[in-house]
Design a protein around this nucleic acid. Structure first.
Lengths: 244, 244
DNA sequence: CGTAGGCTTGAAAAGCGTCAATAGGAGTGG
DNA sequence: CCACTCCTATTGACGCTTTTCAAGCCTACG
């Protein structure tokens, strides 16, 4: 089921898009034929910074990245996390000036594709354009769930929800499943993603551990009771639209 | 500048999309030629409910609507507000099963367009597809700002931010400006949009009034000091991508 | 062996939520 | 024109979740 995981081709993107809409062989070939620059990124390195002009789109080939915004008090809110195969910067590049930053969470490889090439491809091959559009709609769905998560859930629920989302998304990227995975974020980053402080995130994780839902140490998360975690996190994967 | 505001044609949609990408006369005509059902909606009426199958997309011709999600505790989070010209249900209809509800905030008219017709149009006229895609990307940008708003800003800042967003969006829809507008939400709805309680929203509004930033009574908001409100709300309209 | 980054802990304060009661205003019907 | 009702706004007192600040502790790694 897992496609070519060669980290030097756009195969992960094809895999992702083919999941969003039906693509024929020519469509796939056209995506693979996109010109791109391969770039090896370090942990913490910025792909785009807020207010910059973005002229390239970025596809994750390996590693993880986050999108974040900084508010007036200097606090940071992580608004999305991206993994293999995801297009992290269509948003910024199509809208020209970046309204948020994108930064590597771990080391990894990315493919930088000129914006104009993406646009050309979508105009020439409307089905590819449709797949990208649908993918953008799914991103939107995740954003909406995150709004609800930080807006209306308490700390414990928020954290559990995030851990559940990770499990499901990592599974479909072939990087984990409901029994556990490698969590690429530290507690401060979890806090920034859930709108909490690092201290409270720590206490919340302890509460989840104490109740036997998870085991988490040195970046390895073990889900001890998936159903309980799912319930604690008010998690319903519908919004991920994984089975289209 | 304002287009035909006839509330029985898709002109508001053309206006909106033409703002997102360049459309020629044929593109515009094709949009206007989309088959649709005109529907007059009452306040509070649902356009789509969470988990329903959505087969139609909905364009707002007049009035306001909200998207919302309900969490396990029964609390509601409003994740978006829509006004004239906006396509409120591409998200749900392209993704087939609705991951959130859409409901009228005020009475108004909407045009229901079969999903397949939208897809057909975007495949036949990639430029129209591109415009819709960009529009979806802007929606995403607004979602991200809302995540930051409810995740990292305090009550006063959140409310002020929302009031600022309204001013700018209403202005571009020709329904108000930075000096004031008709606010189509009550305090409970403001609370649901900002992730606060109605009581605390009330106190927050009073604080903004006391400081001479706004005047708000019976649904009419007057902005007494735009610069101060903007600052109080940590508001920077970049994320609305209004000047493409 | 020392340092740095991340994790953990405690105590106190703050912000926001909860509960419950009151007030105001618009519309309705007598 | 008044009485009634419904919906929304307002207020007060209290409690709880989360934040803040500050210190200490691990563990990986050079």
């Amino acid at each position: 089921m897992q496609p070519d995981t060669n980290s030097s081709t756009l195969e992960p993107l094809v895999h992702k898009l083919a999941y969003r809409a039906e693509l024929n062989a020519e469509d796939r070939a056209a995506i693979l034929a996109l010109p791109f620059t391969l770039k090896t990124m370090e942990r913490g390195q910025y792909i785009v910074r807020e207010r910059e002009l973005a002229t390239q789109s970025c596809v994750m080939l390996s590693g993880y990245s986050i999108r974040s915004k900084v508010v007036a008090t200097g606090d940071r809110q992580i608004v999305a996390i991206h993994m293999k195969g995801e297009c992290v910067d269509l948003q910024n590049s199509l809208l020209k000036v970046a309204d948020h930053s994108v930064q590597m969470l771990t080391p990894g490889k990315v493919a930088l594709i000129p914006r104009d090439e993406i646009i050309r491809l979508t105009l020439e091959r409307p089905r590819v354009g449709h797949a990208m559009w649908v993918d953008t709609l799914v991103d939107g769905s995740i954003f909406r769930e995150w709004i609800a998560n930080v807006g209306r859930r308490d700390a414990r629920t928020r954290v559990a929800h995030l851990l559940c989302e990770f499990a499901v998304r990592l599974k479909s990227a072939g990087l984990g499943d409901e029994t556990g995975y490698e969590l690429p974020m530290n507690q401060e980053q979890l806090a920034d993603a859930t709108g909490l402080t690092a201290v409270h995130t720590n206490r919340t994780l302890q509460s989840l551990r104490r109740d036997g839902l998870i085991k988490l140490s040195s970046g390895i998360l073990k889900v001890l009771d998936w159903e309980a975690l799912r319930e604690a996190g008010d998690f319903d994967e519908l919004y991920l639209h994984h089975k289209v």
